[in-house]
């Protein structure tokens, strides 16, 4: 079966609609069928619809995403309560250990991301892994720093990623490979992202799933939950009102 490739972290400048359009077209050319762009919380619904239409023109599916950067776990819980039903993907940038732990155990969080250059703040250890394994969170890895960094910094990043991937795999936490780029020239084909994952010991099958099955599953799951007919996992409203009498 043909894979549906997804890049859940494109970061064009939303004020430059021409650049947004170019990046969407490029994503389509490179073989992606689903993309996501982090949106500000206050973005009006019309603007999101405009992005969806632009994606439709480029023949890619669009998933709305928000990147939360809370300072405290309390702030995280508050933001999740306010925003979970408005966005298809919620990513949390874990800047402190309490935030990382809260994000890992909260079932409303989809993606856990860690600062790529601040190695002391990469909190994805065994404790984090154990918490995340009981929730629905996935580990998001951006490929951009691997392209832009060089020398000792890239070596250190690869070493951290190798450890985190080992933890994620031991706790069966899905890994998501995203580009995290804001320019077209840094965009790569899905199979190239998967090849780059071999640098931190992700095998070929897992790497391909990290750019196809894993991100697509998150979007499918959340779209199901955001559907007005959704009641609880496995329970959906099939008919209501007059429709019930016809049956």
């Amino acid at each position: 079966m043909k894979r549906t490739f997804a890049d859940l972290h494109l970061r064009p400048n939303l004020k430059d609609s021409e650049q947004v359009r170019r990046m969407m077209r490029k994503a389509s050319e490179l073989g992606y069928r689903l993309i996501s762009i982090p949106l500000p919380t206050n973005l009006p619904e019309e603007k999101i619809q405009q992005l969806r239409n632009m994606c439709k023109e480029a023949k890619v599916d669009f998933a709305s995403r928000i990147d939360l950067k809370p300072q405290t776990s309390r702030e995280l819980i508050h933001s999740l309560r306010r925003l979970r039903r408005k966005f298809e993907i919620i990513a949390v940038a874990c800047k402190s250990k309490p935030v990382a732990r809260q994000a890992a155990k909260d079932r409303r969080v989809d993606l856990l991301s860690f600062p790529s250059l601040d190695f002391r703040r990469r909190f994805f250890d065994k404790a984090e892994g154990e918490l995340a394994s009981k929730s629905l969170a996935s580990l998001e890895i951006d490929i951009k720093p691997l392209l832009t960094l060089e020398g000792p910094t890239r070596i250190r990043l690869l070493s951290s990623l190798r450890k985190e991937v080992a933890v994620a795999q031991s706790f069966h936490i899905p890994i998501i490979l995203s580009s995290g780029v804001s320019s077209e020239l840094l965009m790569r084909m899905p199979r190239e992202l998967a090849a780059l994952a071999s640098l931190f010991d992700v095998n070929r099958t897992s790497a391909l799933e990290a750019v196809s099955k894993n991100p697509v599953d998150i979007v499918k799951r959340n779209r199901g939950k955001l559907d007005p007919r959704f009641v609880a996992p496995g329970i959906r409203v099939v008919r209501r009102g007059n429709d019930c009498r016809k049956a």
Binding site: L30, L146, L147, T148, E184, L185, L186, M187, R188, M189, R191, E192, L193, A195, L196, S198, L199, R204
Partner: peptide, 23 residues
Amino acid sequence: VVTVRTAVASMTEIGGKPVAVHV
């Protein structure tokens, strides 16, 4: 193949000029 694909994907410039090389 994976080695070469990875190396090619990680190329961001040729002679100081920005590029992307795709397989």
